[in-house]
Simulated assay, not measured.
Amino acid sequence: MKAVFDERQWKHDPKHFMANGTVEPNPEQPERIKVLTHGAGEAGSEFVSPEDHGAGLIGAIHSPEYLIFLETIHTRWKRIEGASDEVIPNIHPDRRSASYPRSAVGQAGFHQADTACPIAAGTWEAAYWSAQTALTGADMVLGGERAVYALSRPPGHHAFGDLAGGFCFLNNSAIAAEHFNRAGKRAAILDVDVHHGNGTQGIFYERDDVLTVSIHADPVRFYPFFWGHEHERGEGRGRGYNLNLPLSRGTGDADYLKALETALARIRAFGADVIVVALGLDAYEKDPLKGLAVTTPGFAKIAEAIAGVGLPTLLVQEGGYLSKELGQNLTSFLKGFEGK
């Protein structure tokens, strides 16, 4: 399977995030690139560099106000006396319709949902090329490839149209789906990350031209808490075009695969031309974020089921954090997809 990656994605190097009131090392480390690159190589993938598609498709998903914020906020933040090296919000509006401040601190609170998306000097460039990686993968699928793996990092599925969160800044899977849509292809996004793809859901929640499906740990007691519940089906024209399949903490291979059957049935009913898989590997039983209990062989079975739909597929990297098996899990998934 062909793969895409850009070296500029190394430039995002977050140091901290806050969990349960405690400042901890950020698990979305650049080291993930090395591990995932090796895992893809073990599956026989060869990497190419992405092309620059410019800002148009990114701007079709994210507001220009938000994009200017991402590009400029770190420089502005560092002008504040005593400011930290990373942009981390300390105040949030109570609603999205609240007034928009000029202050860098206020805008950080408006555009960053939580403390897990710190912005440093290299964040914007890395996020931009992460999105271009997904777009180039989409081009390759449109050009006839059965499947392509996009090593997009930082990840994207928690990013809304004007809001970063959960290690994510630009929603790579949504941007790729929009590209397919504009090329005349009906795109379904299947999110298999352990966390609900809340940003993806939010972007397409009132649209009927992209189907969004997410299998994830039940958010009633798990991030992102406020989104991803079963009753969330879409609104307006989008009603019935969003499917959430929350699973109990600790769910293993067998029950996960049953949920996947439901997800794939919805994708078939939608009449999709192409699938964008938001490929989180953090459903793994030993992932540091501990939500579900998928095994390494289980990832191959998940991939085999998705491949069985018979549609061109773009695999966009989302979560999956450092453990000795992370690369093995990617190898298992990619080989499973190709029937190896």
Rank of each mutant, 00 (worst) to 15 (best):
T136R: 11
M140V: 07
G143C: 06
E145A: 13
R146D: 15
Y149R: 06
A150P: 04
A150N: 05
A150S: 15
R153Y: 15
G156S: 14
H157M: 08
H158N: 13
F160R: 04
G161K: 04
G161Y: 01
D162P: 02
A164E: 02
G166E: 03
F167G: 01
F167T: 01
L170A: 03
L170D: 00
S173I: 00
I175N: 02
E178W: 00
N181P: 00
A183Q: 14
D193F: 01
H195I: 08
N198L: 08
G199Q: 02
R207A: 04
D208T: 06
D208S: 15
D208I: 04
D209C: 13
V213A: 08
S214A: 14
I215C: 04
I215R: 00
D218Y: 07
R221D: 14
Y223G: 02
P224E: 12
G228S: 13
R237Y: 06
G238Q: 02
R239Q: 15
G240P: 09
N244Y: 09
S248D: 11
R249K: 15
G252W: 05
G252L: 06
A254G: 13
L257C: 09
L257T: 07
A259F: 07
A259R: 11
L260P: 05
E261C: 09
L264G: 01
L264M: 08
A265K: 13
R266T: 12
R266M: 13
I267L: 09
R268E: 15
A269T: 11
A269M: 14
G271I: 03
A272Y: 00
A272T: 05
